[in-house]
Amino acid sequence: MENEEISPAALEAELKDVIIEALMLEDITPAEIETEAPLFVEGLGLDSIDALELAMALEERYGVQISEDPEENQKIFESVRSLGEFVARHRVK
């Protein structure tokens, strides 16, 4: 698939767009989202509804399904970096 060769940095940049778009975040640009900063609570300050929405957006866009283990999912949603690693490993589109 055309996306398979995408670099981690390019995927992370794309994910920042996905986050802003899917969660309708205002007052923040992709450049302002730090790759390693926490997405939830402190850092970007996302909440539980965002987590549900983001999981749906990732599945729609990349065909990835998050784990059935809540602790594992917390690690996946830790930062843009961890999201990128997860998507790169599991994406089917």
Binding site: S48, A51, L52, I66, E68, P70, N73
Partner: peptide, 10 residues
């Protein structure tokens, strides 16, 4: 569990 992906298998 927060996510349906976690809840449904349970």
């Amino acid at each position: 569990p927060l996510h349906p992906e976690e809840l449904l298998p349970r």
